[in-house]
Amino acid sequence: MTSYADQAILFVASFAANWFSALSGGGAGLIQFPMLIFLGLPFGVALATHKVASVALGLGATVRYLRENHLERRFSLIILGAGLPGVVLGAGTILQLAPRTALFLLGVLTLGLGLYSVFKPRLGMEHAPKNREGSGLLTGMLGLFVVGFLNGSITSGTGLFLTIWLIHHFGLDYKRAVAYTLVLCGLVWNGTGALVLGYLGSIAWGWMPALLAGSILGGYFGSHIAIRKGNLWIKRAFEVITILIGVKLVLG
């Protein structure tokens, strides 16, 4: 059980992490997950605990995005159907692996995402749906499965992969891509990962009050700003968060 001081630290860290995550389409693990380890949780317990708290991010974002009606039912089912098996497989695998090499490779990839967006000025600025049928859809679903596996296995910043995949392959703009990421990845993918990790490992329930409060409020207010500011603001936030996460994971 944490002290009141620890709960205050957890709330501030969780709010900040989830505010940035809701704004940029991922990256809550940059602050929240390392903070849990710093405060004394073992890797596996911190991972499962962070996953549960991340569901609250999805809940807070969902409350805000439902008012905007950005989500298409068929496309949402495609994301869930292709990604959830990867989430389950990844969550069942990660507790058996040494995390350092995987985190380093994830850092290189995440850093690459940010640089890719920086050097593609028009990326995600316009909503031009594509690859919704045939071979393009199958390739897209394979990518969603891979992203789902990363989401289930490694917690830091993997929502960013879903955001950029939805933009690059499916032609969404940043605002819509972030909406899908926060609602479907944040609520459903993370919820599934939390169930699997909680079943295979353990969750620090005594840490939850501050984490859940910070996640819900951070998710809601971050989503509100993202909706108000629009694509260019979200794109810049995405680039900053991905580059920071990438550098952090590479350096350890």
Rank of each mutant, 00 (worst) to 15 (best):
M1G: 13
S3L: 10
A5S: 14
A5V: 13
D6E: 15
I9N: 08
V12I: 13
A17R: 06
A17P: 10
A17C: 11
W19C: 04
A22R: 00
A22K: 01
S24A: 15
Q32N: 15
L36Q: 11
L36M: 13
I37Y: 02
I37K: 14
F38K: 03
F38E: 09
L39F: 01
L39G: 09
F43T: 14
G44F: 05
V45D: 12
A46T: 11
L47S: 15
A48S: 15
H50T: 15
S54T: 15
S54A: 15
L57K: 06
L57Q: 12
G58A: 12
G60V: 00
T62E: 01
V63S: 01
Y65E: 06
R67Y: 12
E68D: 11
H70W: 11
S76I: 00
L77M: 13
L77D: 09
L80C: 13
L80S: 03
G83R: 03
P85V: 04
P85I: 07
V88K: 10
V88Y: 13
T93S: 15
I94S: 11
L97R: 11
L103S: 13
G107R: 05
T110P: 01
G112I: 02
G112C: 07
L115Y: 00
V118Q: 09
V118E: 04
V118K: 05
G124Y: 05
M125I: 12
E126A: 15
H127S: 08
K130M: 08
E133T: 14
E133R: 15
G136Y: 05
G140M: 05
G143F: 04
G143W: 03
L144Y: 01
L144Q: 03
V146W: 02
G148R: 01
G148L: 02
N151L: 05
G152Q: 05
I154A: 00
T155C: 13
S156I: 15
S156E: 13
G159E: 07
T163N: 06
T163I: 07
L166A: 10
H168E: 12
R176H: 08
V178M: 03
A179E: 00
A179V: 02
L184C: 08
C185R: 00
G186D: 07
G191W: 08
T192N: 11
L195Q: 08
L195Y: 08
L197Y: 02
G198F: 07
L200G: 08
G201E: 12
S202P: 10
A204G: 10
G206T: 09
M208P: 11
A210E: 10
A210Y: 07
L212G: 10
G214F: 02
S215Q: 09
L217C: 09
L217D: 02
G218F: 02
S223H: 06
S223K: 03
S223R: 05
A226T: 11
I227A: 13
R228I: 01
G230I: 03
L232M: 13
K235H: 03
R236N: 14
R236G: 06
R236E: 12
I241T: 14
T242R: 00
I243E: 03
I245W: 00
G246I: 02
K248G: 10
L249P: 07
G252D: 11
